[in-house]
Design a protein around this nucleic acid. Structure first.
Lengths: 136, 136
DNA sequence: GCTAAAGCTTACCATTGTGGGAAGGTCAAC
DNA sequence: GTTGACCTTCCCACAATGGTAAGCTTTAGC
């Protein structure tokens, strides 16, 4: 017989806040939980595992939309690993683009900061650069 | 005599959308623009330069709150470059933390993707990892 | 000088994922 | 039987941006 837990226990067991568990249900990534007579949500082992799945996917930066796809693949024994891999690689590319963007910011900012004396005078290449007329 | 432009021209000249220009005014990073009799906003050269400042700061990833501080420093001739530099370095650290986080995601995800054959069979280490019971 | 198009105004809605809080019902322990 | 912990729904907020709609103004063409 399945052991059922209320949302607070589910939160502790999975590391997903109760707030988020309800939200996941609302947006449809999590099937509607069963309820007690009083209306308390109840979660079984499979649902707890699914919450763990979601949390780990979030930790890898997947969006909720992507996670919905991942869950669909996971629950579909007829999936082709090709599709999962493609989703992962696509996400990986987004990550790489973000990293690149941040690296570029970092480089510019580091150079500006290096040029700034950081003392009690007002002279500051950082502000001068931001204030520059024209262009980018 | 100052050349004044309406919001559309200001947008083109600065690369900031009209929508955003109004928003910046609303949240107070941009002083209220003067108006024509008909109520059209008018921008002078100084305001255009300020919009450019904001755009470049956004491009470096500064939040609007940080930009508000940067603008205050910029307009304050009694500023100390120390304060500007500190703000920049603090932001730089955030960037570095984000990069690190993304690098970690990337590493995990890359390894999982590498292990996944990506063919027409359902076997997929990516899903297996996400579905793993216990832990992280 | 009229009309149509382009430009401006405000106001509201949506996004993403998360948290906070209020008002009220439920359950368990003492 | 009361109290405290837990649950419910509903609404608000964030940060920065885009979209849309209804309505006024300005400009360009004829």
């Amino acid at each position: 017989m399945e052991k059922l837990v209320t949302i607070g226990k589910a939160s502790i067991l999975t590391g997903v806040s109760a707030k988020m568990i309800r939200y996941y249900e609302e947006i449809g990534v999590l099937k509607e939980a069963s309820r007690t007579d009083a209306g308390y949500r109840l979660y079984n082992q499979a649902q707890l595992q699914q919450l763990g799945f979601i949390r780990r996917a979030r930790n890898l930066g997947f969006s909720m939309t992507e996670i919905q796809s991942l869950l669909k693949f996971w629950l579909d024994t007829d999936r082709e690993s090709r599709d999962v891999k493609q989703l992962a690689l696509s996400h990986l590319q987004e990550i790489n683009e973000k990293i690149l963007e941040l690296e570029q910011m970092k480089e510019v900012l580091q150079k500006l900061a290096d040029k700034c004396d950081g003392n009690d005078t007002p002279d500051c290449p950082i502000l001068e650069d931001l204030a520059q007329f024209s262009s980018n």
